[in-house]
Amino acid sequence: MRDADAFSSLHPAVLFGYFVLIVGVNVVFMHPLVLGISFLGALAYAAYLVRWAGLRKLLPGLLIMMVIAALFNPIFNHRGVTMLFYWNDNPITLEAIIYGGVAALMIGSVLLWFVSYNKVMTSDKFLCVFGHVVPALSLIFAMVLRFVPRYFAQAKRIAAAQRGIGRDVASGSWYARARHGSAVLSIMLTWALENAVDTSDSMLARGYGLPGRTAYTDFKVRERDFMAALALGGSGLVVVVAIVAGVLHAEYFPAYAVGDWSVAAWLALGAWMLICAAPLLLGLREEAVWRSLRSNL
């Protein structure tokens, strides 16, 4: 299978670490600029990965969620010192409106990062990360991924076969349909149990259950992964330290206040910007290389 883009071809551990860092900062640290950068980065990268056609399907839902977050906060949260007006006898404050907007940005960027996550972290990459932590769990996960689509396909076959001898799940009285539906389930269950015996034989025959099982992954750690981990990890460290040390900070209640704009703060924001743009930059750089290679042919 081909990787989605240049960033996706990094080692799964690096990718997973990246998403943990970025979503973690997003969720924990409510800073308007940090979240704004993150939102733009997430939107750009998601658009790059799934193209406009893919994004068009997601955007309406995303916008609705963001609007709900932005509206609900001032309606239900009445903290803050700058009261603007009363709505249904409830005070609406500027701080709550700002906080709602920032919360909407947070939700939007986290969701958009997850769009990219789904494209980038395919199941085998996830397994690679967790295979090292809990080998048994990683196998169970791989088996689930194998059996779920298989069961769906079999359920379809069963329904078709039932129809062939005159028991259709899709027609007849309500009662008949329910009965035929439960028949499909029951056949499915028997089939699954009986055929699992074969699977367990096949596992036993290949030594499953012997002590000292290892977890193989098809991914190699390359120099590129070290470099990426170093660059992203370093930038991440700068951001996290800046947050913990209070260089970057934002307050909403009782009054809205965003930290002083020291050099350190700008440095941290720059590092954060680098992190958020990294996947897209990697992808664009590789595309540029391709173009130059092609034009030199």
Partner: peptide, 28 residues
């Protein structure tokens, strides 16, 4: 064994190829 589908344990070709060696504890 007889049934091709029932014998396959994992979802990826490469993982299936490695399954037996994983059981035997062979290093990556």
């Amino acid at each position: 064994l007889q049934n091709p589908d029932n014998q396959i344990v994992t979802d990826k070709v490469w993982h299936e190829l490695a399954f037996g060696l994983e059981s035997l504890g062979v290093p990556t």
